[in-house]
Nucleic acid binder design. Structure first.
Lengths: 212, 212
DNA sequence: AACATCTTGTGACTTAAGTCACTCAAAAAA
DNA sequence: TTTTTTGAGTGACTTAAGTCACAAGATGTT
C-alpha cells in the first residue's frame, strides 16, 4: 500500500516542487498540499488518512512546531518530518519535544527526502547530519564552562552545589567540615563574584548554568 | 569502498552473531571485535581505519557512553551506533549528548541493523522508534503535570514562579498587588503542600519539575 | 626574621524569611 | 437573611540569612 503524505509549506514554489519530487516515487501518494499549519491540522481533524507529513517550520498563521504538537495530540500515529532551510537550534529542540520523527534540510536531494519518508514511515527517527550535530550543544549547557570561567574556588563551588540542593548553612557547614560563619562568608564572596543577592539566586544560577 | 566497522560488546555470543549479520552484507567489512569500550578506544587510538562502531552500553571496565565520548573526542568523523537491550532513558540522553548517531535495539532484525549502518555512514542520525518515542518525555519535564497535580492555587503558582526568578517577598507583593504578609502566608502554604522547607527549595523544585 | 597573604573562624549586627493566631470583608451556601 | 467558607491582611514573634570588621594559624616570599 502507498504511503499517504501531506505537504505543508507557505511557499507555493516549494510546495509544488516537493509534490513533483514525491510523485517520482510510486510508493508515495501526495494526498494534499497545505499553506500553513492550521490548514493541515483541520485536514487531520476532518479524518484525512495521512501517514507522513512534510512540515515547514516558518509559516504564517500557525507555524510547524505548533502544528506538529496539535496534530500529534490528535493522532499520534502520524509521522511528521520537519523541513528547515536554516537549521535553527531552538526549533529543533522544540520539534523533538513535540515528537517529530524526521528532520531534513529543504535543500536535501530528492532521493534523500524520499528515503526519509520511508524510514520514518517504518517507525524510525531520521535526522539530517547537519542538524544531528547540533544536538550535543543543545543538550549540555556545559558544566565546566561556568566551573572554570567564573573564578570560584573549589570550596565556593561546593557550597554552591549544596545550596542548589536546598541545604541550609548549618547543614553545609557539617557536610564540608567548616564553621557556619565561614560558610556565610564564602556565600557572601559568591554573591560578589557572580553579582547575585541571595542563596535562592545562587540555586537558580547553578541550575540554569551548570546543569541540574 | 566498503564500510569499515568495529563491534563492541562484552557478550561473546552477541559479538559473534553481530559479526555474522554484518558479514551478510558485502558493503560492510567487520574490522574488529572488542570486549569493552576501553579496547575500542585503544584500537582507534592506534589509528585503525573505522567508519562506524556498533557499541553496546553496559560493559565492564569502560561502558559504551564513556567510550563514545572518548572516541569522538579523538576522531569526530566516526559514527557510533548505540545498541541497547532495555531502552534506558538516562543512557539515551547521555548518548545523544555525546554525539552518537545511531540508536538501535539489539533485538532489531539483521536488515534493520544493516540499514542503520548505511544511513549513519551517509551522515544521518537514525533512531529506533521505541527509543525515539521516549525523547519528548526526556526533554520536557512537563510543566502542566505539576501545575495541575499538586493542588496549588493560581496565586501560589505565580508566587512560585517569581521565587524561581529570584525575587524577594517584597518584590513579589508589588508584582502581584498583594501585601507582603499575604505573600509570606502563601509561601508557607506552598511549603505545606509540597513538603518543602524554604524558598530556595521552592526555586529548585520549580526549575527541576516545571522547566526553566 | 619580617613581611605579606590566604584560609578559616568569631562575634555582633541588620535584615529578610518564615510561623502563627487572629481579623475582616466578600462570596457562596443554607 | 443568617451562616459558612474563602481569600487577603495584620502584627508580633522566632529563626535563618547575610554583612562586616577583625583575629589566628598556616604558608610563602624576600
Amino acid at each position: 500500500m502507498p504511503i499517504n503524505i501531506l505537504i505543508v509549506d507557505d511557499d507555493d514554489i516549494i510546495l509544488s516542487s516537493l509534490k513533483l519530487i514525491m510523485d517520482l516515487d510510486c510508493d508515495i501518494n501526495v494526498k494534499g498540499l497545505c499553506k500553513n499549519g492550521d490548514v493541515a491540522y483541520k485536514a487531520i481533524l476532518q479524518g484525512q488518512d495521512i501517514d507522513v507529513i512534510l512540515m515547514d517550520i516558518q509559516m504564517p498563521v500557525c507555524n510547524g512546531i505548533i502544528a506538529t504538537k496539535k496534530i500529534l495530540e490528535l493522532r499520534s500515529s502520524i509521522k511528521v518530518i520537519v523541513l528547515t532551510t536554516f537549521d535553527d537550534d531552538e526549533y529543533i529542540y522544540e520539534a523533538l519535544k513535540n515528537g517529530a520523527m524526521g528532520y531534513m534540510l529543504k535543500n536535501s536531494s530528492p532521493d534523500k527526502i524520499i528515503e526519509a519518508v520511508k524510514v520514518v514511515q517504518g517507525g524510525n527517527l531520521l535526522m539530517h547530519s547537519n542538524i544531528a550535530l547540533k544536538i550535543p550543544g543543545l543538550l549540555k549547557k556545559e558544566k565546566k564552562i561556568v566551573l572554570d570561567s567564573l573564578g570560584l574556588s573549589n570550596i565556593e563551588l561546593n557550597i554552591m552545589k549544596f545550596i542548589a540542593k536546598g541545604h541550609t548553612n548549618k547543614e553545609i557547614s557539617e557536610e564540608l567540615y567548616l564553621a557556619e560563619g565561614t560558610v556565610k562568608n564564602k556565600i557572601t564572596e559568591i554573591f560578589n563574584k557572580l553579582g547575585l543577592r541571595d542563596r535562592t539566586q545562587i540555586a537558580i544560577y547553578y541550575l540554569n548554568n551548570c546543569g541540574g
